[in-house]
Design a protein around this nucleic acid. Structure first.
Lengths: 109, 109
DNA sequence: AACATATATGGCTACATGGCCATATTGGCA
DNA sequence: TGCCAATATGGCCATGTAGCCATATATGTT
């Protein structure tokens, strides 16, 4: 028997993969756009204003992480979000951070 | 008037800062440990099994992102989680990914 | 004061990431 | 078949990140 079971490192690696995929402004922007409905690469490219190859690589990152999936239609590829957890999370985070800011300001008096 | 209002890039940069802070297995492990109650650096150092200076830097990243706060007590410093959004998020993500896996396997028949 | 302990910081190295350009690939159309 | 448009991939460079060691800082103890 062990005094301390070692932490399940695989789980945290898996989570880190998700978090890393989210850890870029352009990818977050694209995720939010895709939450309103699927988007082709060309739309997303225009949206973020980077090179098409850059956007393609960002999408590959999101897909690899399992956050989005794609659908080919002729020459175009449409991506859409595969998880429903994002909006709730960001709403929560932004709510909390706004609270903290307010409390911080109030404490200055 | 504009046809397309440009996306609010600051918001996505702010979100990316949060996601980046979460984007490391050791930091996620520490966050989860701290959710059960505050922890001193020494405990967290033992938990992740890395150099103390490494852990200290990880904690600085989390603090900088606003995810944790610290409290000094004598020589020791205790860190604790400052946002409540994490557990719900990871539960959601892990649930969805497990679902996807199940569906994937079922589709193989 | 001298010392020991807990934590933070600076320095360095190795590796990962993001960007663009050029190019390959795939599908539609003349 | 040949060409154009949409997307993906490879190459390269600049920058960022994570790790350890050494050391600084701060606090409690003798």
């Amino acid at each position: 028997m062990k005094a301390k079971p070692p932490p399940d490192r695989r789980r945290y690696q898996a989570r880190a993969r998700i978090a890393k995929a989210m850890a870029h402004p352009s990818r977050l922007l694209m995720l939010e756009a895709m939450e309103a409905g699927e988007r082709c690469v060309c739309e997303l490219t225009e949206l973020v204003g980077a090179d098409q190859s850059t956007v393609s690589k960002h999408l590959a990152v999101l897909k690899q992480a399992g956050l989005v999936e794609d659908r080919k239609e002729g020459v175009m590829v449409f991506y859409r979000v595969k998880v429903c957890c994002l909006k709730g999370f960001w709403d929560c985070i932004e709510g909390v951070l706004a609270e903290n800011l307010k409390a911080q300001r109030a404490a200055l008096r």
